[in-house]
Design a protein around this nucleic acid. Structure first.
Lengths: 257, 257
DNA sequence: CGTGTTATTGACCAACATCAAACTTAGTGG
DNA sequence: CCACTAAGTTTGATGTTGGTCAATAACACG
């Protein structure tokens, strides 16, 4: 189950519509973005897209599928840092640094649009207001990462799994990729383990517990919510960090248009 | 032990010199920054500086001391997300959102310079290149947070403590606040526990183990490194994520000046 | 000195990891 | 459409890391 159940999106549409959720675009900015040249790459599940610290000269826009950032700790274990859904640009900051502090891999069959740094710099020169937009994007990303620290650092396995499901659901729903009361869950239990800092066995047992408690109902590669309120409660989930709910840009903020 | 052992710094100096480590400042940008109005506040150890989700209209520049970001998980536990040293602006992103997804507290007696969002927006309007600088700043911050996820998610207590000491040492040294082979450690074991997602008791035992292994030598509120190489090895520490070592800005990047 | 805070220690316990085997599912080719 | 295979999930048994509780010791500060 890839996530392109919906009509197949075009890269430009994904990018512009995602950026619109990050901040208000002037029509000039929108058109500059829409002019960006890119090359679409397809990757099967589990294909590495980038290895940490390598020099790079493009940014990666997730068009379809799910991509993760991860770090290999002491060579054996891998810790997944974040999941990226269509419209995300996990390596946006490489535009600033020319490299990333993490590796990237496709979790599901995915399509990635690569946009050269050169083109992005031209776009920033033509529409300087985009700097603030990109900044906002990495700021939102950082907020999610902070919640991950809180989750891994101080929630039990049960809460952590519940919290992850809540977050994924809200993010998928914002993209129109989740139904009311269910969502695709195209991850192996091993992936959840790497993501949440637990063992695969314990993930398995925890999911079963959540099922027994009639909170979730896994159906193959989909997850149904037997009780969304109970899930939120078990997770201690407060969606405000997702910034979807954060206040709109303040008047006068985008001063550089 | 506050950290102003060195000559007492002025806010402007701290800010401009810190931003200089983030990217190259044009003289115009430097002077715009130097014009920023601020108000210095002093806070004793453990004073809350901000509570998550509150609306705010200023950013906080740490001038002296150590400040943390934290989240209260389910009301009882607190997870410290990051530590901020002089020159940092932990709530820089509030300029974009008008609020933060975390609380902030002084870990040690600290001085904080508050700069109004209005003034910062004026500065950005006058020197639009600062947008990219600020973006870089939150990007560096995010890189540290990602390493925290990796650390808490997949390192043992022993490795985690060792890793934290490595990171703090490198950051302090970059600010000239650490000697060769030792550094101030103005945190209680309870704080380390909140920071690393462990219990205070276990922090205590882990530190003793590191001492027995002749890797560190705590001397009151200072920490000596009996063997810095052994510490790095125990931690699996690779400083590249600290971005101090990351490539300098690429030619042509700061196109919007 | 006393008094409150922080560090240390010991005894015990729970959550989660590890290992290994059995079972299920999804592909694949005949 | 069925058999075969590889990948993923589930289960049980057992081990370890780190948590909890509670008491004591060491400091720090007025």
């Amino acid at each position: 189950m890839t996530m392109n159940d919906t009509a197949s999106w075009r890269p430009r549409e994904r990018f512009v519509s995602r950026l619109s959720t990050v901040g208000i675009l002037t029509s000039h900015e929108a058109s500059v973005l829409a002019e960006l040249p890119f090359r679409v790459h397809s990757a099967p599940a589990r294909r590495d897209l980038y290895i940490e610290h390598q020099r790079t000269d493009y940014c990666s826009l997730v068009v379809d599928g799910v991509v993760c950032r991860y770090k290999a700790v002491d060579g054996v274990e891998r810790q997944i840092l974040s999941l990226h859904l269509p419209g995300d640009v996990p390596d946006l900051d490489a535009l600033q640094f020319g490299a990333n502090d993490f590796s990237m891999s496709a979790m599901t069959p995915s399509r990635i649009a690569r946009i050269s740094h050169a083109a992005l710099r031209d776009a920033l020169a033509e529409a300087p207001g985009l700097n603030a937009l990109f900044w906002r994007m990495t700021a939102q990303d950082a907020a999610i990462t902070r919640e991950t620290v809180a989750s891994i650092g101080s929630r039990t396995a049960y809460e952590r799994v519940a919290h992850f499901f809540c977050e994924l659901y809200v993010r998928l729903q914002a993209l129109g990729l989740a139904d009311n009361g269910s969502m695709p869950l195209p991850l192996r239990q091993t992936d959840l383990a790497d993501l949440l800092g637990l063992s695969a066995v314990h993930i398995n047992r925890t999911i079963q517990q959540l099922r027994r408690d009639e909170i979730i109902a896994p159906r193959g590669k989909r997850l149904e919510f037997a009780s969304w309120p109970a899930l939120q409660k078990a997770a201690g989930f407060d969606p405000s960090y997702l910034a979807l709910a954060l206040p709109a840009p303040v008047e006068g903020m985008r001063a550089t248009n």
